[in-house]
Amino acid sequence: MEADTINLAHDEAAGAPPRTGSRWKEWRLTLKIILENKSSAAGLAIVCAYLLIAVIDWVYPALIGVHDADALIPNFSNTVPQAPSFAHIFGTTYPGVDLYQAIMAAIRIDLYYSFQVVLGGAIIGTVVGVCAAYYGGYIDEALMRFTDIFLSIPYLPFAIAIAFFLGREISNISVALTLVWWPLYARYARGQTLSVKENAYVEGAKASGVGTPGILRYHIIPNVLTPIFVQISLDLGTVVQVFAGLVFIGFATGNLLLPELGTLISNGFGFAVTAPWTILFPGLAILIFAIGMNLLGDGLRDALDPKRRT
């Protein structure tokens, strides 16, 4: 087993192209393990459904009955929320917006910005973390102290402060959240790199004269990316919650008609007691996505755990 790994390392170190066939096989195995477990399969189904909705919103929104995926369609002749009925299956919310269409359209916006936050954070964090761990010494010390500074303020108030100085716009929320999210990835990537760096095959590659880019490209990055990927999937649910939360407390007050789940909850806030559905349905949309994402994340973590793959 061990000898195998070392041979493989030498193959790749010698510049052999990554064996796409075996990589494809690995993915199929992962998928199989996820589907074997009922809860992670359910998570995968939920996440796929949300992604599908987002794509349809983007390509052909009329397919799921959304008239305009970029803005809510108000009805100023009757702004008071109406209870669910055949015409409006989730009811309407202030100002006379059909809640079903609103939620369907909002899923795209929320998913878009949340992916932006998580991917942006993961990329910055991974670069910083891998560099810190790989070069070590002063570089490590400096980069990690820099990271620690970002971790000295709780993320939500910090994001509010950043967004305040950037200006009140929805895209700035995602910038602010990215800026507070990357340090977690940096720490995580650093820890992973340190443990990979100790492995025999990295030593072996170094001994056989592979340069820094080669080691990073073939040995460290692929091995660090897997756990980062799991972390991304576990974080997405949380980021959607936080993103909608920031919009909810008023980041996008300027635009009442932005199809966004936090805006929808905020629009319904004044009617919460008389028209609970205005709060209930947008919140459920977030809750279900977060549950699906967490189930999938747990499943992925188990599936990518080498102990379980054999």
Binding site: Q241, G245, A272, P276, I279, L280, G283, I286, L287, A290
Partner: peptide, 15 residues
């Protein structure tokens, strides 16, 4: 609890 938006839970309790 882990998946639920905290402010939404507050609103549900208010309702």
């Amino acid at each position: 609890g882990y998946s639920m938006p905290i402010y939404w839970l507050g609103l549900i309790l208010i309702i």
